[in-house]
Amino acid sequence: MIAQNIGFWIIAVLMVVSALRVVTTNNVVHAALWLVVVLAGAAGQYILLAAEFVAITQVLVYIGAVMVLFLFGTMLTRARIGAESDLNNSYKKLGIPVALVMLVAMGLALTRSFGDEKLPESAKVVSTQEVSDQIFGPYLLPFWALSFVLLAAVVGAIVLARKD
């Protein structure tokens, strides 16, 4: 348990720092790379939470595919590969209090609701088979709906991005 705790805290600190860099850095490509760190950290947390398959999917889909998309997006919109000064808008000052108020609200709610509650010690790793039994059993209809969402997204992205 201690090893896991240490792992959690290291990853958590890394994630928070990287996330802050994502929203503050002045370089779009750097932001994307920091985002990779956050996403990889999230995958690590998933493993700590006994979710192997989700962690692997996270790596494959997010770090593998979504990040490539982001970098392509950066490239195609000719963002400068380097520092830029005007990445933030004038509402920056509004963002900080909003985020803080939100954090306070959530923090209050969390401490009140869960306090010192611990996660079960002997949680067993959820196997891929169990997840697939769930997806193709009771959650089949959402799965289908999701397939259509993906199809629509593919078609939509092509229609939006092609040159006429």
């Binding site: 996330a19 994502v22 990445l87 509402y91 963002g95 909003v98 985020a99 959530m106």
Partner: peptide
Amino acid sequence: LFCIGVYGVIARK
């Protein structure tokens, strides 16, 4: 992370 994300959505141009 959520709050950082919210800040990013608001602050980024």
